[in-house]
Amino acid sequence: MNIVVLVKQVPDSGAERTLSASDNTVERGSASNVINEMDEYAIEEALKIKEAHGGEVTVLTVGPAGATDSIRKALSMGPDKAVHVQDDALHGSCAVATSKVLAAALGQLNADLILCGAESTDGRVQVVPHMLAERLGVAALTGARKLTVDGSQLTIERQTDEGYEVVTASTPAIVSVWDTINEPRYPSFKGIMAAKKKPLQSLTLGDLGVAADEVGFAGASSQVLEFAKRPARNGGAKVIDEGNGGGELVAYLATEKFV
């Protein structure tokens, strides 16, 4: 099975994140950048499917030059090769435009199965998988907590507020995964060494037949007008339990009219 895994590089959610004061885009220069956590689960799932059914795993990233670090890290887990779409014109792209570029790249990769994270930690938009399905005309099985592959038949379980749904489709399809689906492997030393030599193809917008003004600020379908730091919360009263902590807690809830 020919599998493509979408991997996005994002600012580390454990560190301070901000928008850039000059153009209101996510600040990626000063932030420490990592693989979007949910995408590690997609990589793991791809590797498991390859181990069971054979095939090839390709990592696909649309992002700035610095995203190469995350691509090499992704490769060190075990995928065979990577494609990195990078072009200065991409800066400022909205999700609609990003999906156009991803779809164009996927158009050249002939995937049976596209795996990706359910959402990215920077935007948390959760829209790219369905945008791609819409553009490519393939099935979308999103939010999987479990994926079964039986020949060309794919079945997922997807959590809902009421319980879960079982959804099926045939390949070609795109499947997005939550972190409940597996436990991503740590790259081995051998994997890290091997990743340095794995093929990494770099593509520009021109290679994909996407015009520069369809992406970036020029092609953006939405715009951040302004942003501001939310006032930080200040800790309030703190009592030490000396035998009546529960009572004091309820007294507080009562003054706030919760009981």
Partner: peptide, 27 residues
């Protein structure tokens, strides 16, 4: 968590929570 809590109890939750539950029941 106390940096953002409007009200905090420093203590063992296994003591504080049952006591709070009891107190709410009483009220």
């Amino acid at each position: 968590i106390f940096e953002l809590a409007d009200f905090g109890v420093v203590g063992d939750l296994f003591k504080v929570v049952p006591q709070a539950a009891e107190e709410i029941r009483k009220r």
